[in-house]
Amino acid sequence: MTQQGTLGVAVIGTGKMGADHVRRVDQVISGARVTAVVDIDAGRAKDLAVRIDGCTAYSDPAAAMAAPDVDAVLIASPGPAHEAALLQAFEHDLPVLCEKPLTPDSASALRILQAEQRLGHRRVQVGFMRRYDTEYMKLKALLDSGGLGRPLLMHCRHRNASVHSYFTNEMLINDSVVHEMDCARWLLGQEITAVTVLRPTPNSHAPEGLSDPQLVLFETDGGAIVNVEMFATCGFGYQVQAEAVCERGTARIGEAHDLMTNTAGRWGGDIAPDFVVRFEEAYDREVQRWVDATRRGETEGPSAWDGYAAAAVCEAGVRAQATGERTLVELIERPALYR
């Protein structure tokens, strides 16, 4: 590792998310520094690299991973590029924080599972950042304590002010509801076994062809039912909320009641404009804990199995969305490495 134990990190992909991670590693967290940035747009990578002492710009991920000052990899490139980058990281046995999706489909995610198992140890943490949000962590601890009894239902809301004109129905599942898929599995400690998608009359403000909002239902192997309101064009801001209904009570997060004002005959508070603002602290905590674990020689957090399971549920969700039918989720038996 560089600089007396400081972790040298290569960030692959320097778009909105990748550039934000470069800033985060360089300016926010401790124990790591950006030693390489990688992008197929060589100019964009160079523009970022020149602002950071000791950072080199690359257009080839393999070249960056072979560099002597790279100890770990943060993948923030588009999903279709993840499989190749992950396999290259495995060749160097490098720890990886991979933004979701692990890969775009369950078949390629399964290949990653198999390759990581051949290493004989975990190397991948998947970037499901909600697991590092303070409210979600409190809800997880409460459910795990058993104080409210067995979870029976979970109500989730996921709202965006707007989406790009190219946003598709499939992206509602693969890019948005995938977060609720992971949170439901993690919070409940159960696998999702079936998905149903209901579509009301579309919002008149949605892009042409986008059936928004949608109601997505999950069934789990523990007998719980999860419903997700996905409303990508609500118009008023970004909201993520969840309520667990248990045998002896309920618990709800995401109401944004940290600051409430009463003035000029009105009461209320702020609504975050997007996910970067809403989950900024969660991203910081996620990357810091990845760095800390890596420096200890450990891999923790959401695993490649979680990435694979999310991909499989997404595929069932897209099929359910297209057919209107309840669709079963197809999963392999969970390998020993991920138990």
Rank of each mutant, 00 (worst) to 15 (best):
G297C: 08
E255P: 00
D270A: 12
I253N: 06
A232G: 11
V228D: 12
L259A: 08
C246G: 08
E286H: 06
A232W: 13
E286S: 06
R296Q: 07
R248P: 00
W290H: 04
E243Q: 14
E300W: 04
V216Y: 12
W305E: 13
R248E: 05
M230F: 02
I253G: 00
G269N: 01
D274P: 10
I253A: 03
Q241G: 01
W305V: 00
V291H: 06
L217M: 09
A312R: 11
D306K: 04
P273F: 07
R248H: 03
V240P: 01
Q239N: 05
T299E: 00
A224P: 05
D221S: 14
F275H: 15
V240K: 01
A309Q: 11
R295S: 09
R278V: 04
T299F: 00
I271G: 12
S303P: 15
L217K: 11
L217R: 15
G268Q: 11
E300A: 12
A244K: 05
V245D: 05
E281Q: 12
A309P: 14
F231C: 03
A244W: 07
G222D: 09
I253E: 10
G222W: 03
R278N: 10
G297N: 04
V216L: 11
A264N: 15
W267N: 15
A309E: 04
R289L: 04
A256W: 03
D270M: 06
A242W: 12
A256R: 10
A244H: 08
G222Q: 07
R285V: 00
Q241M: 10
D270Y: 08
A232C: 13
A251H: 09
G223R: 13
I225G: 08
D270I: 14
C246K: 02
F236K: 09
V276T: 12
A264D: 14
V313L: 04
Y308Q: 02
T261R: 03
G268M: 02
Q288Y: 03
A304W: 09
E298T: 05
E281D: 13
V240D: 13
R296N: 09
G254V: 07
V216A: 05
Y308G: 07
E229M: 15
A224I: 04
A244P: 14
L217P: 02
V228I: 15
F275Q: 07
I225M: 01
A309F: 07
E286F: 02
A293P: 07
E286M: 08
R248C: 02
D274C: 08
V245W: 12
G254T: 01
Y238L: 05
T263M: 04
L259I: 11
R278H: 01
G268F: 06
E247D: 14
Y283H: 10
C246H: 11
G301S: 13
I253K: 11
A256E: 06
G222K: 02
G265Y: 12
W267F: 15
T233F: 10
P302H: 10
A232L: 11
V291R: 02
W267M: 09
I253C: 08
